[in-house]
Write a protein that binds this DNA or RNA. Structure first.
Lengths: 210, 210
DNA sequence: CCGTGTAAGTTAGCATTGCTTACATAAGTG
DNA sequence: CACTTATGTAAGCAATGCTAACTTACACGG
């Protein structure tokens, strides 16, 4: 109802009554997840915020888990583009580009801790969803490409894959510990960028045997 | 009721009716969290498994979140002792000891992914609980001491603290990505131990400026 | 040995939730 | 216009978190 009529007619091929309730629901859920924790959301509350009955969401999503998967998919797209633009701000092949990808990652976690936690803490139907699986691999590919450029090797190289994964591990752990307030007092003064650069140099500069 | 009367009299100073329902509840919740996901547990079901009414748990815990905090606290103790025994299996000051601590960490995550996820994904009242906070710091101290011994520096040294934290980040991320089945196909053949040793060498071998 | 306080359990109930079923309405299509 | 499909509502079910009021059993001072 609050949508512009122009946008309504544009997507009129799929929206019949009230415009795209699906997108409105995802937005409402995202807000709820952010304010009430990753599991402190309810379909009823989301429907209430969208101004529809509590049964309406089930016309667009099979169940509660599918709504959450929708939120995660949308978030994953935003995360990937943020990582790509982060990498683009530094010369290709530089360690700074790798660190910038990590900074985009942790910045996303800081900005939307609820959605971030949800994205990686979701258990039901997370790995059975091929759409989410594909989105996840596309996201990881950003790291792989940056690591390959930095090492001067093709992205298919096993050393590149291993280094990219180790980088991901570090950044992922740093993000989680940060939003969990588990940053020890001693390193509170070290900012993200220094951490990321140091880790990138340590991991990319060392040969991996295996 | 199913407890042995001997055990009942031993702890009779605090257990009045049915023995220690508190411990039984925590065990039931741990099992539920492991089988039905970190949030797929219910107080009612836990009470049912313990053989009491659905209102009985509220005589021992204020609310649902406090039960979960109890489970997390108990799990954190087990994790810390596992890390300590892991470190003790290698000579003090060796890189292997550091890697062994990490291996204990990720082994715990693999063995009890539900509890592990719960321990670090819990949001409500997690950092407001001083008991959990203390347990967490004691756990991190194991890493700090191992890193200090390996670097030949006192545990209070800032470089030690930073390295320990970076190690924790890596292992934490690796653990999460592992239980989330987010290990890319290329590195599936590399086992945990190789990863941990490589990361420990990379992080501990490089000076950190900051 | 006997009242009494209190810890630990019970039943009953409330509000809310996830989800289903049955029904109503609106849009596109023949 | 009828027909199909998409989208919404209303009503209801079983389960949940949690509370209130009551009951039981132990512990202990006299």
């Amino acid at each position: 109802m609050t949508e512009s009529p122009a946008a309504l007619t544009v997507r009129a091929r799929t929206a019949y009554h009230h415009g795209d309730l699906r997108a409105q629901l995802i937005a409402a859920v995202r807000e709820l997840v952010e304010t009430h924790g990753p599991e402190g959301f309810s379909v009823a509350e989301a429907a209430r915020r969208a101004g529809v009955s509590s049964a309406a969401p089930y016309k667009h999503f099979r169940d509660r888990a599918e709504i959450l998967r929708g939120v995660v998919g949308e978030a994953m797209d935003r995360l990937r583009t943020a990582m790509e633009t982060g990498a683009a701000t530094y010369p290709a092949g530089s360690v700074e580009a790798v660190a910038a990808v990590g900074l985009a990652y942790i910045s996303f976690a800081r900005a939307e801790p609820g959605v971030f936690r949800l994205s990686f803490g979701l258990t039901e139907g997370h790995e059975n969803d091929p759409d989410l699986q594909a989105k996840g691999e596309r996201t990881f590919d950003v790291v792989v490409r940056c690591a390959a450029a930095c090492l001067g090797l093709p992205p298919e190289d096993r050393h590149v894959q291993t280094c990219a994964y180790m980088l991901w591990c570090f950044v992922h752990g740093l993000s989680f510990l940060t939003i969990d307030n588990k940053r020890s007092t001693a390193d509170a003064r070290i900012d993200d960028w220094t951490y990321l650069l140091t880790a990138a140099r340590a991991i990319l500069g060392q040969p991996v045997r295996g």
